[in-house]
Design a protein around this nucleic acid. Structure first.
Lengths: 193, 193
DNA sequence: TGGGTCATGTAACCTGTTACATGATTAG
DNA sequence: CTAATCATGTAACAGGTTACATGACCCA
């Protein structure tokens, strides 16, 4: 998956590991985390699979750099992956894993927990609004405006997700507050379907 | 994370690896995939960390089974994890990774792609409605009704997520259909903020 | 006689995380 | 003088995936 993300970026134009890392942070990091070390490792694999070639360029006043260029075989692999029909719907959501077992802690602590989740969402949103995904810079060379349509779609997903997330968090918080204030119908003894 | 999920289940009552696997499929699998082999491996680690003990029980007409029981130290670890404040907001979403690079393919193919995403959502929803998360069975021994509140919250998240997902997919599909039918304002040349 | 349930895993590989390492240039 | 930017990674470990292996019992 990460391999194919890198391949996709290289398809926009030749880049160094450093640039890929930045491009990643500026766009894909909103829904996919990748460590710098992992990117360099994947580049090795990509090269040894023949999906890209590299060229070392010496620089004055700066460290040497290694520019990766996608090959025909790499482009074929990218397209194979794009067309392949195996993406799974289920995504690991760490927040839900924790929420699931929260019955173990006190009511007050759990109300605070949801406030904390709310804060996390706000932090993400702030970051998202201050430094919105900006792949545009990396693809000036790409004349095809269709790419931008898909970038926007992933951004749109992000916006809708955050909105949904906030309403979920608030709903959970309100429910716990209802229980705290002793409204009996909030505790599920025989909840309706 | 998986370790702590298993620990959480063991906290509801002693179980074999087989039962944990089933409990997982019936509840946590809606937001966390785990292979059977992985569960057995994690149980080894859990045991060697002293978070659970095991007891082999011979059976007639059935294979022997190994019942795991959470220890005080395991319960402490579960609570440490629950209280710990390190859950990251960003989740890897494979579907977005693919969508991001879809500009590479044709319009028609991309419209079909979103139909396919829609079908995936429908499949998930069907499965979700036919066999809804049912942890209840595994926790009859737990008198505390508070647990169910949190289980329901994760189910609620799932419902809201699917809804959001469907409206995103349809919105994307409609946008592509708009482009296909030649409405110029859909192609982003200078899109507004 | 064929498929489902019960019940255990191992081995190899791939992917992700954490910690460490180096060092010059440039802008404030 | 200090922090950021540029630019490369390695090593070790943790977590996830795929393939394989075994075998009895029960129900239709």
């Amino acid at each position: 998956m990460l391999k194919h993300g890198i391949l996709g970026l290289l398809n926009y134009g030749s880049m160094t590991g450093y640039e890929i890392n930045k491009a990643f942070k500026d766009s894909l990091s909103y829904f996919w985390n990748a460590q710098t070390s992992q990117i360099y490792r994947e580049l090795q694999t990509i090269k040894s699979n023949g999906w890209a070639t590299d060229e070392v360029v010496e620089q004055i006043g700066k460290p040497d750099k290694k520019i990766f260029t996608i090959t025909e075989s790499g482009r074929a692999e990218l397209n194979r992956w794009l067309v392949e029909d195996n993406t799974e719907f289920v995504t690991r959501i760490p927040i839900l894993m924790k929420t699931f077992f929260r019955g173990e802690r006190s009511l007050e602590e759990n109300i605070a927990y949801f406030s904390q989740l709310e804060d996390m969402g706000i932090d993400f949103l702030t970051q998202f609004q201050n430094e919105p995904p900006k792949v545009e810079d990396y693809s000036k060379r790409l004349k095809d405006p269709m790419n931008a349509v898909f970038w926007e779609m992933t951004v749109e997903f992000g916006k809708m997700y955050i909105q949904m997330y906030f309403s979920w968090v608030n709903q959970c918080k309100m429910r716990l507050e209802g229980i705290k204030n002793g409204s009996a119908q909030e505790t599920p003894e025989r909840q309706p379907n």
